[in-house]
Design a protein around this nucleic acid. Structure first.
Lengths: 219, 219
DNA sequence: ACCTGAACACCGTTCAAGT
DNA sequence: ACCTGAACACCGTTCAAGT
């Protein structure tokens, strides 16, 4: 009898890709070795033939997501638009796969492919005229801001009962919270509006450019 | 017979403070209802008389940590040094209690006490001359950068086997990673050096100040 | 009123056994 | 070689019972 044929194609990569799909659909909390194995139509312990433990599998999931969106090529662009594209892409990738944030938070990923974006960013900042140290610090700041933005991008899967802030904002005593009591809803709406990430990113790039000009000694 | 007397003082606050201590010592992964109850010398189910579920307990832990470090008073200071102190304090609090990062990441906290720092920050930015929207966006950028910085501050409890990057950095092919292959260790060392957080914070404040001056119309 | 043991439906992982 | 059921030491939470 012809089998479904799923098991015959089992590999580290196939398992990681399926895990990423599971993550996108059900979230990090729901991803267990037992459920992933069931999804793949194999016994739970089969997965341990491909990965030492769950952490090693999650590392492979991060790599699978990284491979999905290669670091863009420079193609002669100026440092600033290129750097901006690097980080907008990283932000989009993390927002597309929100589960990755939790994985990378628990234990920083240090693989060669994870360093590709770092290399590209440092190169761009060197071209901008920053010293090695200023470039390293500036890229780290951009990375941390991008990661923080993605971490707070969406209350993962359940906005069930309306905006969770509304009741709290309405209850703030105006004497102690003059701004939020009056305009809290607008403030919160601004935060989740499109362009918020890019706004902060452009602030950082403004400051980096200003310092680069200073270092250059040009007027 | 005189009991140890621990149970008689049980309250939401006492439980939350003990949970925070447990979190600091053993990390978020290790904190279970069973172990916390054992720590307090009560049965596991006793905790459910004070909190509906674990999430509600974790919210109380965040509040306990927030109460520990009140939002500093303005006391007539200029907007920029004050705003800087607000965020340096938040960063220090998150680094002092690394488990809080994981809690707040899973589900944004929206309590009145969590909004205190927002109110203070928005007030400072209004004094700087930013519009309501620019102030809301700038504060959000500062908050997200600060949170991201704290999230990557320390690989929680185990740097066991030396720097985890060393081997990976040494293996990067210089042709594709010219900067990191040559100076990877210095780059990574710069990231974890004291002052990295403040460096990025000052970049953001520089850009905010520059835009504020522009809005003012002053030369 | 306040507390709690037993039980249920889950985890990740080890081990010894299957083919 | 590759796969896997049973078992172990855990979870959060419900329920019914204790005082």
């Amino acid at each position: 009898m012809a089998e479904r044929g799923r098991r015959s194609e089992l590999s580290r990569e196939r398992i990681a890709i399926q895990a990423l799909r599971y993550l996108d659909r059900h979230g990090l909390e729901a991803l267990s070795m037992r459920r992933l194995a069931g999804d793949l139509g194999v016994g739970t312990m089969t997965l341990y033939g491909y990965f030492r433990d769950k952490d090693e599998l999650l590392d492979a999931v991060v790599d699978a997501a990284t491979a999905e969106r290669p670091v863009p090529k420079r193609r002669g662009r100026a440092w600033r638009p290129y750097l901006r594209e690097l980080l907008v892409g990283m932000h989009a990738s993390l927002c597309q796969h929100p589960g990755l944030v939790g994985i990378r938070l628990r234990r920083p990923i240090a693989t060669a492919s994870a360093f590709e974006i770092t290399e590209a960013g440092l190169q761009a900042l060197a071209d901008a005229g920053l010293t090695d140290e200023a470039g390293a610090r500036a890229f780290r700041a951009l990375f941390l801001y991008t990661f923080g933005s993605a971490a707070f991008h969406a209350p993962p899967p359940e906005p069930d009962d309306g905006p969770p802030w509304r009741a709290v904002l309405a209850s703030l005593p105006p004497a102690r919270y003059p701004i939020l009591a009056a305009q809290g809803l607008e403030v919160v709406a601004t935060w989740s509006r499109a362009g918020q990430f890019e706004h902060g990113l452009d602030l950082l790039l403004d400051a980096i450019e200003a310092r680069a000009d200073q270092t250059d000694g040009s007027p």
